[in-house]
Nucleic acid binder design. Structure first.
Lengths: 171, 171
DNA sequence: GGGTAGAAGTTGAGAGTTCAAGCAAGCCGG
DNA sequence: CCGGCTTGCTTGAACTCTCAACTTCTACCC
């Protein structure tokens, strides 16, 4: 029953070596624990999950404290749908407000409100502490640098579209 | 109103430096994209999210292809509640079965069924490919080693309980 | 101008996660 | 052997996320 290979994969799958498996398991464990830890910390202190907090931060850093929905979704690396739901919730909290885009009637801005800014101001120190304690305080400067490089590489590889991706004929 | 400091934090919050912020942002971006990518890959190919797949793998690697609920939850770094829901779903798929523990009537084993094993066997190659393409193929051997060490450190720091944690009087 | 493909954003249903509460069984001091 | 503490696991409700429509508007083409 092997006359016609069912998939395009060449032959034997390239399994992970034992060492690769250990690395991968460490990654899964750490990222699961870390996400959980930060979600809990922010949910408890600021009343929202980590990703929502990240949205407020992005807005706070943007000119006029506002961003088009699609831009915000891209910079947070989430789908527009997910963002739509998230902004709806943040709007209910009074931390974000929607505004129509004058130049494109389909467009919406998500705007950080004063209340939203205030929440951020109040809870940023606690969150920074949590990140420090979980990550930076435990790593040497070399490890921090290394982590940055590694994660940048991985993110680049997965980015749905990045500089030049709209020019596919250049490879 | 500052006679009694409300928290244990000394005074000024220690903000992240610009470089630390870049590292952290890279981490958030990469881990968000990667989780998403693997969830989608496994949902599409195997019909379950990444974490469920991980549960099946843990069971497959365990003696008798079975594990007590609490042990499985700990090794997957999730809460018992979450595991309970997850196993309920996997049971509906026929990939896992529950069995009573004879020595402790409160206890339950989660047992990987033959169907569950088969699903794993069929989809492991595709998943390994996805992990390779997203991570290992992009990193040098030194970076892989480094990633393993860094993630091990972070996981250690967040582990709710680890070797010696049941001896708190030793610090 | 009218047709149409694509982009921006939303929606609803179903699946997954969290949190607090709950039940049953084991553990133990008296 | 009984009362209370703890452990193992489950449950339901509220919340979040995904996926596939769907609406509205823009851009392009002729």
């Amino acid at each position: 029953m092997k006359t016609a290979p069912a998939s395009a994969r060449a032959d034997e799958p390239r399994w992970l070596t034992d060492e690769e498996q250990r690395v991968w398991r460490s990654y899964i464990d750490a990222s699961t624990l870390l996400e959980d830890h930060l979600d809990r910390q922010l949910q408890r202190d600021a009343g929202m999950p980590h990703i929502y907090y990240g949205l407020l931060v992005q807005l706070a850093e943007s000119p006029q404290r506002r961003l088009r929905m699609t831009e915000l979704a891209m910079s947070a690396k989430i789908t527009r749908s997910r963002l739509s739901h998230a902004v709806a919730r943040l709007e209910k909290n009074g931390w974000v407000r929607r505004e129509d885009c004058p130049s494109d009637k389909r467009g919406q801005f998500a705007v950080l409100t004063d209340d939203g800014y205030e929440v951020l101001r109040r809870h940023a120190p606690g969150h920074v502490d949590a990140v420090r304690q979980a990550v930076f305080d435990r790593l040497s400067p070399e490890q921090q640098k290394s982590l940055g490089e590694i994660m940048r590489i991985i993110a680049e590889g997965l980015q749905p579209s990045e500089a030049g991706a709209d020019l596919p004929w250049l490879r």
